[in-house]
Design a protein around this nucleic acid. Structure first.
Lengths: 298, 298
DNA sequence: ATAATAGTGTCTTTCAGACAGTATAGT
DNA sequence: ACTATACTGTCTGAAAGACACTATTAT
């Protein structure tokens, strides 16, 4: 077939100049979450758990000294998913874990160096795989406890709708570092039109716009925990139902009733013959993930 | 603050070379859906509705003569969302409608011209705004009826899990054109690892990998219709509950029971004093969208 | 009168939330 | 015996599914 300039597809492709226009840079950002047990002092009590995210201290400008989510540039000859896997491995040594694409951030002023479009991925690691090796262009890699709480909500009525503003505080705590930020989510309703906007309005120590990326990821994780089996990616091979419940509670940031929780997840797990021991109280049966749950249910 | 090379942030930014590495091109693709009434022959019967997507006939290589979703390149000085809005307006004349980001496709061989990363957006238009003007680099723009059906499902057990392959046929029909494709979705479960892959395995007349983008969008739309108010973006200002139900049915591709449907959406609508007339049967009350539904419920 | 749609009432089943109760290891 | 956890049974109310019934218009 020949086009208007009289070229075949082969000729067209040979003549095509892919550098006619200036291009943005593309990066991938990895939000790596895990749930870790905190220190325990009472031999009888079970250890508490906390949701953690891996952050890297920036060793160079811009945002030097602040903490950022690991990530890097996508080169022209690798797929975005492979770039994400490569970054994950380079910066943490972790491989073969659960990963899903979150969102692509395309604002113009995200990076003071140049125009950068960033595609964020969320990865979930089970707490047993925790050998983090900081990469080259980073001073330090560290797990931070994540807290995400709505601190204010405002509603303003307009002539044909309203604005709803939610202020969500992201608090990260890791060792001696405690950094936080506030993300403002604006929902604008006008007539039948609905529009969302997410903006970092305050940040101490969290680099770039990563506070809103983290807030988005936590929101997605909370949603998905309720209706998928995503939480099992945070569990070791064998686990007790109480441990599983703790993971749900830590993500949802609320307490659940044991009997109801067990009823709800009963189809997603398979009993084993193993038990915990030496716990200072009644031992608990160990369970494993039921791979077939999703297909039985949908 | 000074970095390892002894540069301040200002100096660093001045010296930074953003063209060290070759960059991929970035495009936005717009999946514009609407629900339109089909021709009606019986004066008494209500017209049937169909889910439609806007496609553009490619006027040049590659995929010349095939149909593609509207889209275009993101320039370095516009945000991705603005690029999406601009494309929407340029190619269709439509403005100010519902739009959400869907997914970013990052495979290496998506476009024979060069490496292209494509971010897809879904837009929903109400059926009353239908003045489509084809843009410059397109021969023709047309609404196609969308059908998405699973035609085959295979499960193969492996030593520590299984592969689940779903074959989904995308059928587009618009005027004299009838084009289709098959998308294969592979779910690989190995141990606790889960991985999804989406691949176009057959396509007649649908350009690039757009068949899988459309399949993904329809899946998302079906999900969101069930638990959000997204369907109202497809409705005119005033509508009957039967029309609303038809929109739900067309998206979900199944019939719903009237009484249950009305109970379910009762909180999302507000009664008006208006009625339909001249319909060969009992007139119907007109409703409008209840802007406050989401906030009352969450 | 009739065809076709508009609109309501209610029975049943399912599921989430709340709570009370029993069981069992280690010290 | 005591403590902290493991595990189960059941009541309640809300929501989803199924179905039967009444109401109203243009022709």
């Amino acid at each position: 077939m020949i086009n208007k300039q009289g070229l075949t597809e082969e000729e067209f492709l040979k003549l095509y100049d892919s550098n006619k226009y200036e291009k943005p840079s593309v990066t991938v950002d990895m939000l790596i979450f895990t749930v870790i047990e905190e220190e325990n002092h009472n031999y009888r009590k079970l250890p508490e758990k906390a949701l953690k995210i891996l952050m890297i201290k920036r060793g160079d400008h811009p945002f030097m000294g602040q903490w950022a989510v690991p990530g890097g540039f996508v080169s022209v000859d690798e797929s975005m998913e492979n770039a994400a896997k490569r970054e994950l491995k380079e910066e943490t040594g972790i491989e073969g874990i659960y990963m899903e694409q979150l969102y692509t951030w395309g604002d113009v002023e995200r990076d003071p160096r140049m125009r950068v479009i960033s595609c964020s991925y969320m990865a979930l690691v089970d707490s047993s795989a925790l050998n983090i090796q900081p990469g080259d262009d980073a001073d330090d890699a560290r797990w931070f406890t994540v807290k995400s709480d709505m601190i204010k909500e405002e509603k303003a009525i307009t002539k044909d709708g309203y604005h709803l503003k939610q202020y969500i505080q992201i608090k990260l705590q890791g060792g001696d570092e405690e950094i936080d930020a506030v993300v403002k989510i604006t929902k604008t309703v006008a007539g039948r039109g609905i529009h969302f906007e997410r903006e970092v309005i305050q940040s101490t120590g969290i680099a770039f716009d990563h506070a809103k990326v983290i807030q988005y990821a936590v929101e997605r994780l909370r949603n998905k925990v309720e209706y998928t089996d995503i939480a099992f990616n945070l569990m070791p091979e064998l686990f007790t139902l109480t441990e599983l419940q703790q993971v749900y509670e830590v993500i949802l940031d609320k307490e659940l009733l044991k009997a109801n929780f067990r009823r709800k997840i009963s189809g997603m797990v398979i009993e084993t013959d193993h038990y915990t021991k030496d716990a200072g109280h009644r031992p608990s049966k160990l369970y494993k993930f039921n791979q077939n749950w999703f297909n039985e249910n949908i």
